[in-house]
């Protein structure tokens, strides 16, 4: 394949259409062995289609796809026994217990992990005798990740594993994913949460409307697209022009509802200018200074916020 390091996944010019509309429109990326790779984008960006092609669920499409040196559209059966995967909707046999489901799935694979180890890893030990239908959303998602893990697969595919979960459950699941990573397993993850991608992923590809618009480590992406820092504060509509007038020419103002974000390389000058306003009764309520995030990168590249 002409690549130096061992590639777990490599995708070249992949296109996939539904009734002539390209859901995936010519994407390229590689995933190296042992890394957590994140496909980040809004709903409908093409994340699920891409994942379903990689795991051998969707046939067809154009371009070259190699997963563990197999073409998932041709050697799906061989590939499936070497990967573990989880789907967005964690539906299962309702009336089986956690233990029964994990041991059922264990029997599908040639070299499964020990059942108790997996239950322990996803933190469901005290729930192992509960029926699947009695689990909370977060527990169900962890079970679903457990069913992907039991395969002992060389790559674990997680499609939006934390969607719809409360913050506590999300953090629990992040711990699980970091545990998987610490074992040196390759993880392919899709998400529309920027913080999730930033926290978990070694490298991220930002996908929008079927195209990859940026790829790199979260740090790289932020540095390439933002030498600036972000200043945030509350603002009222009648104050917008006043603020615009006093900002240094290199600073940019973005508004969302009553919250203003000023991106600037000249942080001290900008703060000084804003403080001068506060002498005239402008409050600068909830003023914060932060580095740019992937959210800012997405906004800059697409002109939209990711969750719309």
């Amino acid at each position: 394949m002409g690549v130096d390091i061992l590639q777990s996944i490599s995708v070249r010019d992949l296109r996939y259409s539904y009734n002539g509309l390209y859901a995936v429109d010519g994407i390229n990326f590689n995933v190296s062995q042992g890394e957590i790779f994140g496909l980040l984008g809004p709903n409908g960006a093409g994340k699920t289609t891409t994942t379903e092609i990689l795991v051998g669920l969707k046939k067809g499409g154009e371009g070259e796809v190699r997963v563990l040196d197999l073409d998932p559209r041709v050697d799906a059966k061989d590939l499936k026994s070497r990967i573990g995967a989880q789907l967005q909707t964690p539906a299962l046999f309702d009336k089986l217990t956690v233990y029964e489901l994990i041991s059922l799935f264990a029997s599908f694979y040639p070299h499964p992990l020990p059942i108790h180890e997996v239950i322990e890893m996803v933190g469901l030990t005290d729930k192992k005798k509960s029926l699947a239908k009695k689990l909370s959303g977060g527990q169900l998602q962890r079970l679903s990740v457990g069913l992907a893990l039991i395969s002992n697969g060389e790559i674990i595919f997680l499609d939006e594993p934390t969607t719809g979960l409360d913050p506590q459950s999300r953090r629990n699941l992040w711990d699980v994913i970091e545990k998987i990573k610490s074992e040196g397993r390759t993880i392919f993850l899709t998400t529309h949460y920027m913080d999730e991608a930033e926290k978990l992923c070694d490298r991220v590809a930002i996908i929008d409307k079927g195209k990859i618009i940026a790829i790199g480590t979260p740090r790289e992406l932020i540095q390439i697209h933002f030498e600036e820092q972000a200043l945030e504060f509350n603002i009222r509509a009648n104050q917008i022009d006043t603020v615009k007038n006093i900002l240094p020419p290199t600073a940019r103002l973005e508004l969302e509802d009553e919250r203003a974000t000023v991106y600037t390389k000249e942080v001290p000058e900008t703060i000084k200018a804003l403080l001068s306003l506060s002498d005239n009764g402008f409050e600068l309520a909830q003023f914060t200074v932060r580095s740019a995030t992937l959210e800012d990168v997405f906004l800059k590249l697409t002109g939209r916020r990711i969750r719309e």
């Binding site: 795991v55 669920l57 059966k77 499936k80 026994s81 995967a85 789907l87 909707t89 964690p90 539906a91 299962l92 046999f93 799935f105 599908f108 694979y109 069913l147 395969s151």
Partner: peptide, 13 residues
């Protein structure tokens, strides 16, 4: 409807 068949299609069965 609940995509259990789809989930099982991910496994090598």
């Amino acid at each position: 409807e609940k995509k259990i068949t789809k989930r099982l299609a991910l496994a090598p069965i």
